[in-house]
Structure formats: C-alpha cells, structure tokens
Simulated assay, not measured.
Amino acid sequence: MRIGITGAGRIGAMHARNLSQLSGVDELILHDPLPGRAPGVATQLAGSTVRIRTVEGYSEQLGQVDGVVVATPTTTHADLVLLAVAAGVPTLCEKPAADNEPRLRDMVEAVDRSGVEVLVGFQRRFDPPLVEMRRRVLAGELGTVYHVRALGQDHEPPDLGFIPTSGGMFRDLFIHDLDAIPWLVDEPVVEVYATGSVLVDDAFAASGDVDTAVVLLRFASGTLATLTGGRRDGLGYDHRIEVIGSRDALVVG
C-alpha cells in the first residue's frame, strides 16, 4: 500500500514514523510546500524498511497513492480533503476538519456525495480504556451520570508560528474532548459555556487566542461536563477523563 502524507511538520512527522512501522505499508510519499521539510522527515526515517520519497506537488502526490494523510495547518484542511476526494483518494484528516462551521458543512456534503472514505483523527474513540469506559457508562454500571471531568494539558506550547493557523485553542486542543465526551455519554450537548486566559505566552493573545481555558457542557439529561486545558504543564503531557455516577466512578488517564 502506498500512503501519502501532506504536511511534514510535527504531526505529519509523527504519522510518517507510525506508518513506516506498519507491515501493510510499502511506500510513503511525503509532500510539504515548505522547502526542506519533507526531505528532512525522509532523512530521519532513512533506516525504515518502507520505501520513502518526496514529491513537490499535492496533485502529483494524489496521483500516486492509495490513501493520504492531511496533516497541514487547520485553515488548509477542507481544501486539501476536497481535492483528495475529487481524486478518489481515501483520506485521514487531522483534527479539526475545517476552521469554521459553514466550511465544514460544505466539506461534509461533498464527501457524502463522493462516496470516498474520509476519517477525521479523533483517535480517542478507539483507545481501549475509553472504549471500555463508554461500555460501562452505557451499560448503566455507574448509575445516573452526574458529572464528567476532563483535563488536557500540553507539556510545552506548539511552535509559535503554528498559532495563527491553528484555529484557536478550543478547535485545536479541546477538540478531542469536545468529540469524545458526547460520544462517551451518548447524549447531545444543549448548552456550552467557555472562558480562557493568556497565562503562558503573550503570542497567543497576539493571534486572538488563549492558552489556558475552561469549558462547561450541559447535556440533554442534565449531566454536566467540565473540560480544563492549557498549553503548558511543567510536569509533562497530561490527559484524564473522569466519570462520576450515582453508583460508581471511573477514571482514564
């Protein structure tokens, strides 16, 4: 199988490392519009048993692969996914799939019409501990779910050049929990409150963003969820989800 990766930054390089270790992958074809980035990742993986090469254009890449990973800045995701779908190439798109709701709706409609498989990188739905937590919640083992608490802390902030194109902290960092928690309790969100501050680096404020934030979700049944997160944690990366019910409580993290 030939897999393309467009975007050879931090996340694209991670996907390249992971894919280079899979037995079903024969070749990785890398692309990044910034000179030197894709060749740099290819050099890092030179010892892999998978063939790795680079191409200069995204259209060229799409013509040579069986699937593509979109790992570029958020503002480019929708356009690149639509080009892949038009070429009939199954796509894994990093989260979030788009930087605004109208663009996202247009993309979803186009993907649905095409019949091409597109997956957004919400990997927590496949994490075995969270899958088991969800099974227990939906089986009623915890009783009535009162409260869900989630903590998501990066060890260090992302590259400051990434901030203006990230889509903002709520779309970039909180997006995993905003996807996972409604899935976990299997209920729609009916009310949202969010607030944030700039406590880590003023560069976030310069881009109209925050680096420390809290989100409160209210679900249809009245269950509440609090999500807290930040761009820096001196002790390292930290992510936890706790579900508190009338009979029991569970923590994953």
Results as ranks from 00 to 15, higher is better:
6 T>W: 03
6 T>L: 02
7 G>D: 07
8 A>H: 01
9 G>V: 11
9 G>Y: 08
11 I>Y: 13
14 M>I: 12
16 A>H: 07
17 R>C: 06
18 N>C: 14
19 L>C: 08
21 Q>S: 14
22 L>D: 15
22 L>K: 15
24 G>V: 12
25 V>A: 13
26 D>Y: 04
31 H>N: 15
33 P>R: 06
34 L>W: 07
35 P>R: 11
36 G>E: 09
37 R>F: 11
38 A>H: 11
39 P>G: 09
42 A>Q: 10
43 T>D: 12
43 T>H: 08
44 Q>A: 15
47 G>Y: 03
47 G>L: 02
53 R>E: 13
64 Q>T: 12
68 V>Q: 12
68 V>M: 07
71 A>C: 10
74 T>Q: 04
80 L>T: 08
80 L>I: 05
81 V>A: 06
84 A>W: 01
86 A>L: 01
87 A>L: 03
89 V>N: 01
97 A>Q: 05
97 A>H: 08
99 D>Y: 08
100 N>S: 02
100 N>R: 01
102 P>L: 02
103 R>C: 05
104 L>F: 04
106 D>I: 00
107 M>K: 03
108 V>M: 04
110 A>R: 12
113 R>Y: 06
113 R>I: 02
116 V>H: 04
116 V>T: 12
117 E>Y: 11
119 L>M: 07
120 V>C: 04
123 Q>G: 13
124 R>F: 06
125 R>T: 14
125 R>F: 15
128 P>Y: 13
131 V>T: 14
133 M>I: 02
135 R>D: 06
136 R>L: 08
138 L>P: 02
140 G>N: 07
140 G>K: 03
142 L>N: 07
147 H>R: 11
147 H>Q: 09
148 V>E: 00
151 L>F: 01
152 G>C: 11
156 E>S: 14
156 E>N: 13
157 P>K: 06
158 P>V: 14
159 D>M: 02
162 F>P: 01
166 S>D: 07
168 G>C: 13
169 M>W: 13
170 F>H: 11
175 I>Q: 09
176 H>R: 13
176 H>N: 15
179 D>H: 15
181 I>P: 00
182 P>W: 07
187 E>V: 01
188 P>R: 10
189 V>Y: 03
194 A>W: 10
200 V>A: 09
201 D>E: 09
202 D>Y: 03
205 A>K: 06
208 G>N: 11
209 D>T: 05
214 V>P: 01
217 L>T: 03
223 T>G: 03
224 L>A: 03
225 A>D: 00
227 L>A: 08
233 D>I: 00
234 G>L: 04
234 G>E: 10
234 G>M: 00
242 E>R: 12
245 G>K: 11
245 G>V: 09
246 S>A: 05
246 S>I: 01
253 G>E: 03
